[in-house]
Amino acid sequence: MGSFIGHILPGTLFLLVGVWHIWSCVVRYVSNPMSFRVRVWCPVLGFGGRLKYLELYLIVIGSFLDLCVELLIATRLEFFVHGVLNSVYMNNFEHSGMLIMFFIFGVISLLSEKTSCLPLPEGALCLIAATAFCAEYLLFYFHSTTHMGLEGYYHLILVLLISLCVLSTVAGALFPTSFPVDLCSGIAITLQGLWFYQTAFTLYGPMMPTGCRLKGDFILCHLMNHQVRGELLANFQLFANVFGVLVAVVASYGFAASRFGHPDLRRLHAAED
């Protein structure tokens, strides 16, 4: 069972990274489509280079802080009971494992970019990021916490969105010059962040479907009709999130093309037509 804060914190991290990835991907493509390359992380240009690695620092610091919440604060440091791993906090231990993977990805990327001791190509970094998403996928698919009913339906949708992150990140290593692949990766990460928010506000906030309520560690619906209505509401929420993200992507592409569009962009589109 999760909590409102437990979904908002990772949701914020994924949402910030995803939105930035979409915008950076679009700007890089419209600025010079012929030299476009997939990037698993996107540097912040300008400001004298002081913010170049902002995304990686956000991943490292954000995952570390969330790790501290899950592993140190939530467990009250009660890791073992009578020499055995404390099963009460197994949920927190699993979340910690996922966060460690993203922390490792951020650290490795920083070492690869800022030092000469670990020079890795972009494709290798894509595969490391895909490994972190795979760990997240396995966590939610084989969760020790039994997600049943309406809660299980929301987490099933989350697992599907995570699988899109895995596939798009692996595709980035296989097709390093593909704009659609890079854009799909940013969209998948953004949708995952939005769905964390949606889950927090629906299951642990003010948007609980009629006939369902949070009782202890479970979401209980009085009748099966109430649960079905809640699942249909989840489908509509997913559609609204996807529609909103796609509208935002099209709008950002149009704006970036009008401000930063390269002459080759129109010629490339004309050649494709």
Rank of each mutant, 00 (worst) to 15 (best):
S3N: 09
S3T: 14
S3R: 08
I5T: 11
I5C: 03
I5W: 12
I8Y: 07
F14L: 00
L15D: 02
L16E: 02
V17I: 10
G18N: 05
W20P: 04
H21T: 05
V27R: 13
Y29A: 02
Y29F: 12
Y29W: 08
S35A: 12
R39L: 07
W41Q: 02
W41L: 00
W41M: 03
V44A: 06
F47W: 15
G48D: 12
G49Y: 14
K52Y: 08
E55W: 04
Y57T: 00
L58D: 01
L58T: 06
I59S: 00
V60R: 01
F64D: 06
D66L: 07
C68Y: 09
L72A: 13
L77E: 11
F79Y: 15
H82S: 13
S87F: 11
Y89E: 10
E94H: 14
L99G: 08
G106H: 00
G106F: 00
G106R: 00
V107Q: 03
I108F: 13
L111F: 08
S112N: 11
K114L: 13
C117G: 05
P119Y: 10
G123C: 07
A124W: 04
L125P: 01
L127N: 04
F133I: 03
Y137A: 00
Y141E: 08
H147I: 05
M148L: 14
L150P: 00
G152M: 09
S163I: 14
S163K: 02
L174A: 12
T177N: 10
G186F: 06
I189E: 05
L191G: 07
G205W: 08
M207T: 01
L220I: 13
R229C: 05
F236K: 13
A240S: 14
A240N: 10
L246R: 05
V247A: 13
A251F: 09
S258W: 11
F260I: 06
F260Y: 15
A271M: 13
A271P: 06
E272F: 14
D273A: 05
D273S: 08
